[in-house]
């Protein structure tokens, strides 16, 4: 118990990893369980952010180089591109089907 309190008082690599693990699980939960396609996208953003926390935490504590941070920048770039494309697709789906619930969209043609 004393060890655990001691551990809690000094945030290190493990604290950030645990936080990103929980964030990742929440993101996966949103992707699986939400009906609205935009909620699924928000879950994906959470997942990408948790991966970024991992990259930067390892970059700071383990490698001591800046490679992790550069890769985190690429992740952010891809997240921006992904969000733009995905929202364009969602808008198109809404025009065609009048809904964005992922369980009701079950045909490729309109």
């Amino acid at each position: 118990m004393q060890d655990f309190l001691q551990w809690l008082q000094q945030p290190g690599l493990n604290h950030f990893l645990l936080l990103s693990g929980i964030l990742f699980s929440l993101g996966v939960f949103a992707v699986i369980s939400r009906k609205n396609a935009i909620m699924v996208l928000m879950g994906i953003e959470l997942i990408l952010n948790s991966a970024n926390i991992n990259f930067i935490a390892f970059s700071r504590f383990s490698t001591g180089t800046f490679d992790g941070q550069v890769i985190a920048i690429f992740v952010i770039i891809l997240a921006a591109a992904e969000a733009a494309i995905a929202l364009a697709i969602v808008l198109n789906i809404y025009q065609n089907f009048n809904t964005v619930n992922v369980d009701e969209i079950n045909q490729l043609r309109d």
């Binding site: 970059s59 700071r60 941070q69 952010i76 997240a79 921006a80 969000a83």
Partner: peptide, 22 residues
């Protein structure tokens, strides 16, 4: 985590861009 540049990028791109898009 000593990543000040990434923190600013996060605010600009995510909060300023992706969130508005969402």
């Amino acid at each position: 985590l000593m990543a000040d540049f990434l923190a600013i990028t996060q605010l600009l791109v995510y909060v300023g861009g992706i969130l508005v898009l969402v």
